[in-house]
Write a protein that binds this DNA or RNA. Structure first.
Length: 317
DNA sequence: CGCCTTTGACCTGCGC
DNA sequence: GCGCAGGTCAAAGGCG
């Protein structure tokens, strides 16, 4: 409806990705590598099993390498698209005048960055002053009469568990809830948070469930942090935003770098592993992510349990 | 004890 | 000026 939003979709549903590329290969390789985790044939020696496990480990390593390369390629593609998007926005906003329908409350009159995370895909969209909110069906027109008109506003959509009724969006910062209000056009209440790390930090956060899809939390950030992102000494930097995709059994983890002080137009950062892993911390983090992903895989855990139980059964008198 | 959440009251801007 | 609606305050209570 005359909206100047420009959306760039980036499908990060790694599970479906895997199902296309990796599963096919798994089918082929599983024919060649029979793995007898149950130890039915006790004649197989431990050496044979070790070699089988080594082969499986090598296969997983290769698959990991392949997926890492794919993610790198996707990240590069995303960067390219983002730069193109920035150019398109620059040309569009220069010529486009806002057409605001009159509403009871004035719409946000400041720059806004949207980072929409729904169903495992990221939609980064930007609008300029007075250009947005005209097509909003969620009723998220917030007033900010006292705020600096140039206050940065960013939105993050996070899919949560349907059973999760809390209005909490973990982003690595420490927030203090100071209010909750039921708004007119959304049955779910809106929670108001302030950054509690620094008393002088002007950043505020509003969290409300999507009126159309209650499983999606809409977090609206206003302002920029005037401190580093170290809410607590033991708190890791920007915690991953978990998007529990309904179409995949295990959640896809995407980190939105909301802590970036320069988070502004066309500056959404999606962190992804690069080809060269130089930082030991990053390497450790990736290893933890891999371990987490493996342990969430029911097939892997059942196979592991079967292997362990098989070994125990064979070694028992 | 300190920090946090909850929640009703109050404040403020806007449309009529 | 009045009413509405969003935003904020602050007291009370919970929790570790």
């Amino acid at each position: 409806m005359g909206s100047s939003w420009i959306n760039a979709n980036l499908d990060l549903n790694l599970n479906s990705f895997r199902s296309q590329a990796a599963v096919k290969e798994e089918k082929e390789e599983h024919v060649n590598i029979p793995i007898n985790f149950m130890g039915v044939g006790n004649k197989i020696s431990l050496n044979d099993e070790a070699s089988v496990l080594k082969a499986e480990l090598n296969r997983l390593k290769e698959e990991n390498m392949r997926l890492t390369n794919m993610i790198s390629t996707m990240t590069e593609d995303y960067t390219t698209l983002q730069s193109r998007l920035g150019m398109v926005v620059a040309t569009n906003t220069a010529s486009e005048l806002p057409l605001l329908p009159s509403r009871k409350r004035k719409a946000e009159n400041n720059q806004e960055v949207k980072s929409d995370l729904v169903n495992g895909s990221i939609i980064c969209s930007m609008n300029n002053d007075n250009a947005g909110e005209s097509s909003s069906s969620e009723g998220d027109s917030f007033k900010k009469p006292k705020e600096d008109p140039k206050t940065k506003v960013s939105k993050v959509y996070v899919r949560t568990e349907p059973s999760d009724t809390s209005l909490v969006v973990k982003d690595g910062y420490q927030w203090r809830k100071y209010g909750q209000k039921v708004t007119r056009d959304n049955p779910s209440p809106r929670a108001y948070y302030r950054c509690s790390y620094a008393p002088s930090c002007p950043v505020k956060k509003k969290v409300q469930r999507n009126a159309e899809d209650p499983s999606v939390l809409v977090a609206t950030y206003e302002g920029e942090h005037n401190h580093t992102n170290c809410a607590k000494p033991d708190t890791p930097p920007p915690a991953p935003v978990l998007i529990n995709s309904t179409s995949s059994p295990s959640p896809t983890v995407v980190t939105l770098d909301l802590a970036q002080p320069g988070l502004s137009q066309s500056n959404c950062v999606v962190r992804a592993p690069r080809r060269e892993i130089k930082s030991p911390k990053l390497e450790k983090h990736l290893m933890e992510q891999m371990a987490s992903t493996l342990t969430r895989d029911p097939g892997f855990t059942s196979a592991l349990a079967a292997a362990i139980s098989g070994i125990i059964m064979r070694n028992s008198p």
